[in-house]
Computed example of a mutant assay.
Amino acid sequence: MSIKLIATDMDGTFLRDDHTYNHPLFDKVFRQLERHNVYFVAASGSSFPRLQREFKDYVNKMIFISQNGSVIHLGNQLFKSFSINQEALARVIHILDRFYGPNDINQLVISTSEKSYVDQGMSARDFEIVKLFYEQVERIPDIRKIFLQRPSEKFTKISINFANHIDLKNVAATLDGYLPPSLIMENSGFNTDLIGNAAATKQNALSILQHHFKLRTNEIVTFGDNENDLGMLAMTTQSYAMRNAHSIIKMQAAHITQNDNNHDGVLQTINALIKNNH
């Protein structure tokens, strides 16, 4: 059985808890993947500019699924994106304002394929956190009027980081019945929900890449740790839940990594797979 493509989630999976990774080991592994013509895909809930920064020396040789599947890049080139229509975006903002107050939401981020926007009133601390995950971030006077102020923009994702006293299970129960059918909401970890086009999932993005590169399902390896990775993990018999993943994620994956995300779990597993498959 040969491997042609490896797709891995980022935070909690490929990246350590401090958002770093083992650069020397990655360079060694990446060279081996190149030698065997294996595509390497970074699949994340965060933005493409953030992934560009994380992999600045490898961007042109990698594939990126960002914003939970809303945006796909082949190297630096935008390959496909799924936008949210303005009416649906306005509906989401209305629903959030109806059920949640300013003390319930820490960060509200609205993104295009290349840029993200936040409210002018966001705290300096929250703004720094948002920049870590989205990189290209602009403050605007009123985030709730963005769809009126920028009618020609193609928005791709809404990210809501809720305060610790908000239970995401209750959020899902509350919002699911009110979201337009054209949208999907997924838990991205860290008490954050991502809302985007219903077709914009990591699983669908990976399926698009599978079709584009004419790959068989058993030629794809996937890694993940959270709810938004489940579809991707279910695609292939070569799926790996992280040692540190929730038990539900481990039950859905075909395998569990020997090491967790803080001990190079993804890279160590890829190393072993290369030795065994080539």
Results as ranks from 00 to 15, higher is better:
Thr201Asn: 05
Thr236Phe: 03
Leu233Val: 09
Met251Leu: 13
Asp193Leu: 11
Gln210Ile: 11
Met235Tyr: 09
Met232Gly: 01
Ala254Gln: 13
Gly189Ala: 12
Ala234Cys: 10
Tyr240Phe: 15
Ala205Thr: 02
Leu183Pro: 05
Asn187His: 12
Ala199Asn: 14
Ser239Trp: 05
Val221Lys: 08
Tyr240His: 07
Ala253Gln: 05
Ala241Tyr: 08
Lys214Val: 08
His246Pro: 00
Arg216Leu: 13
Asp229Pro: 02
Gln203His: 08
Leu233Asn: 02
Ile195Glu: 04
Leu206His: 08
Asn228Ala: 06
Gly196Ala: 14
Gly189Asn: 10
Leu206Asp: 04
Gln210Arg: 08
Asp193Glu: 04
Ile195Gly: 05
Met235Phe: 14
His246Tyr: 11
Ala254Ile: 02
Asn204Met: 07
Phe213Asp: 12
Asn226Ile: 02
Asp193Ser: 06
Asn197Ile: 07
Asn197Gly: 10
His211Leu: 10
Ile184His: 09
Leu209Gln: 13
Leu215Ile: 11
Gln238Leu: 14
Gln252Val: 15
Glu186Asp: 08
Lys250Tyr: 08
Met235Thr: 02
Thr201Trp: 04
Leu179Thr: 11
Thr192Glu: 03
Gly196Thr: 14
Asn191Ser: 04
Gly231Asp: 01
Ser188Tyr: 00
Gly224Trp: 07
Asn197Met: 01
Gln203Ala: 12
Ala200Ser: 12
Met251Lys: 15
Gln238Gly: 02
Ala254Cys: 14
Gly224Leu: 04
Asp193Arg: 05
Pro180Asp: 15
Val221Tyr: 08
Gly189Gln: 06
Glu219Cys: 00
Gln203Asp: 10
Lys250Trp: 10
Ile220Tyr: 07
Leu215Lys: 04
Asn204Ser: 09
Asn197Gln: 07
Glu186Leu: 14
Phe213Arg: 07
Asn191Phe: 02
Ser207Met: 09
Gly189Cys: 06
Ala199Asp: 09
Asn228Lys: 04
Leu230Thr: 03
Pro180His: 03
Met242Gln: 08
Pro180Ala: 15
Glu227Ser: 02
Pro180Met: 01
Met235Arg: 09
Ile195Val: 13
Ala253Gly: 06
Ala253Phe: 13
Ala254Tyr: 14
Leu233Trp: 06
Lys214Ala: 13
Thr201Phe: 04
Thr217Lys: 03
Gln210Ser: 06
Arg216Glu: 14
Asp225Ala: 04
Ser188His: 03
Ala198Met: 11
Ser182His: 10
Arg243Ala: 15
Asn226His: 07
Ala205Glu: 00
Met235Glu: 04
Ala241Gln: 09
Ala253Tyr: 10
Ala245Lys: 13
Lys214Glu: 14
His212Val: 05
Leu194Ile: 06
Asn218Glu: 15
Thr236Lys: 02
Ala253Val: 11
Asp229Arg: 03
Met185Ile: 13
Ser207Arg: 06
